[in-house]
Amino acid sequence: MQDKVVIVTGGSSGLGRATAELMIAEGARVVIADINGEAGEAVANAIGAEFVRTDVGDPMEVEALVSGTVARFGQLDVMCNNAGVIAIAPVLETTNEAFDHMVTVNFGGVFYGTRAAGRVMAEQGFGAIVNTASNGGCSPSEDMAVYSGTKAAVVALSKACAIELAPKGVRVNTISPGTMLTGMVPDVEGIVEVLDKLQPIGYAANPSQMAAGVLFLASDEGNYVTGHDLVIDGGATAGRRAVGV
Rank of each mutant, 00 (worst) to 15 (best):
Lys168Ile: 05
Ala238Ser: 15
Glu41Thr: 13
Phe111Met: 10
Leu198Pro: 03
Val56Met: 13
Ala71Arg: 07
Ile201Gln: 03
Ala236Lys: 09
Ser148Glu: 01
Met79Gln: 11
Ala39Pro: 05
Val8Asp: 00
Ala33Thr: 12
Thr104Leu: 14
Ala71Glu: 15
Ala122Asp: 11
Asn36Met: 10
Met184Cys: 02
Val78Asn: 00
Val6Ser: 02
Gly68Asn: 06
Val66Met: 01
Asp3Arg: 08
Val245Ile: 11
Asp187Phe: 11
Arg53Phe: 09
Asp34Pro: 04
Tyr203Pro: 11
Gly84Leu: 04
Phe99Arg: 08
Gly48Asn: 02
Ala236Ser: 13
Glu193Tyr: 06
Arg29Asp: 07
Ser208Arg: 07
Glu93Ser: 11
Val192Trp: 14
Asp77Leu: 01
Val154Leu: 01
Gly244Ser: 08
Glu38Ile: 13
Val194Leu: 13
Ile201Gly: 01
Ile232Met: 00
Ala71Trp: 05
Ala156Gly: 03
Asn81Cys: 00
His101Tyr: 03
Gly239Thr: 10
Asp196His: 12
Pro200Ser: 02
Ala42Trp: 10
Ile32Lys: 07
Ala49Tyr: 01
Gly10His: 05
Gly118Asn: 09
Ser67Thr: 15
Val8Gln: 05
Gly202Thr: 10
Asp196Val: 10
Val105Thr: 12
Thr94Lys: 06
Glu221Arg: 10
Val188Ile: 15
Met144Thr: 07
Ser13Val: 05
Gly16Thr: 06
Ala204Arg: 03
Pro59Ile: 06
Pro186His: 11
Glu193Cys: 07
Ala236Asn: 05
Cys80Met: 02
Lys159Gln: 15
Ser208Asp: 15
Thr95Cys: 00
Glu97Phe: 07
Ala205Asn: 12
Val170His: 14
Ser141Thr: 05
Thr94Asp: 02
Lys159Asn: 10
Thr104Arg: 15
Ala64Gly: 03
Asn106Trp: 05
Thr94Pro: 01
Val31Gln: 02
Ile47Ser: 03
Gly40Trp: 08
Ile24Phe: 08
Asp55Pro: 12
